[in-house]
Design a protein around this nucleic acid. Structure first.
Lengths: 198, 198
DNA sequence: GTCTATAGTTGGATAGAC
DNA sequence: GTCTATCCAACTATAGAC
């Protein structure tokens, strides 16, 4: 009954080597079973992959939701700013995020449509979550006169821009980007001075 | 003498299917030659790949340099803002950018170090190019009191955040991100009002 | 559920004729 | 430079014993 371990090892291999680059032999080897045993759990490589995909999307959504729900940093700025540190820790802890990013950006061609729908739904969910949260802080007076939908979308853009640096340039450059770009974003959504609109 | 066509087809296949997913048989088929003929041009798949990599980095650097050098939009804001439209056109025209992004984010494991160095150098070059250009506009008085290195880095972060949306969500969402996030960035680097620093 | 054995295909790569 | 023919290793997947 190594179904869970199998899924976790598969996740890690897909994240590191891609769908085509991942080998069922090597996955089985790391799990400690023989290759044909995989087929008693999943009927094909695609089946295994899709199982991992669904698991990862569910997990990631939940994790991010929990982060923003936490009460220890109750003001919005701390939450948005602190997200980068939290994310880096998550990223280094497991391969789920790397898997999610890789398979969203470059899905196996045969599963392109399914992946597109899943990742679009995921991003939409993030946008709604952020929007809802920012709206609450607007009522509390922290974000007067700001277009919340734009602010949420721009924040997601910022997050993506910082994260891709983590993918291939490592922790140091990631942190630098976050430290530099977030304050500019934060000032950008607050400066409603018309002088700067053109 | 189909060396150039071979390189272009290989580029397109690596971009769409990844290093492992690309097949020399299929590449040869699309070129209109037989598979062993590839080996009269390149001594291995890795060799073909690295040849494409160097070509693409050279090309991309040159393209971006030329865009920012152009004189038709001489003010900085137009250039930074117009980059997104220009980039989208480039992206849809060929697979070079997709190749570059894919192989920078998720290089073939055996070539991880080489790719890391190449993409780091590329990004550094972009940062210097932007910094230099912004510095000129600062002298002209367009960007008073702004930390140029930070502004350049934040702009690259913005660009990356917008581009990744193009990778998997398509043109519409890409444009939306650019339209929403750029003005916030632009205001962010201009609002030196200390009220918004904390 | 897990194994051994193996089918069937495709992968990258080479030898040698033209 | 391009081909045919071929090699060998690796892949996904299946059959059938335990």
């Amino acid at each position: 009954m190594s179904a869970i371990k199998l899924r976790n090892v598969a996740l890690s291999h897909f994240a590191r080597y891609g769908y085509e680059g991942a080998s069922l032999s090597k996955i089985a080897e790391e799990v400690g079973i023989k290759k044909p045993t995989i087929y008693s759990h999943y009927k094909s490589k695609e089946d295994l992959f899709l199982s991992v995909v669904k698991y990862v999307f569910h997990l990631e959504k939940r994790q991010i939701f929990l982060y923003f729900q936490k009460e220890d940093k109750s003001d919005l700025k701390s939450k948005l700013e602190g997200f980068f540190d939290w994310f880096e820790a998550e990223f280094n802890l497991s391969d789920t995020t790397k898997f999610l990013l890789r398979m969203s950006y470059f899905p196996p061609p045969a599963l392109r449509n399914e992946m597109f729908q899943l990742s679009t739904a995921f991003i939409d969910g993030m946008e709604r979550l952020l929007y809802k949260m920012m709206k609450q802080h607007q009522i509390q007076g922290e974000l007067n006169g700001i277009n919340m939908k734009d602010a949420a979308l721009a924040y997601l853009t910022l997050v993506d821009g910082v994260i891709v640096e983590l993918l291939f340039a490592g922790t140091n450059r990631y942190k630098k980007r976050a430290d530099v770009a977030f304050p500019i974003y934060w000032r950008g959504i607050h400066s409603i001075n018309k002088e700067y609109l053109l």
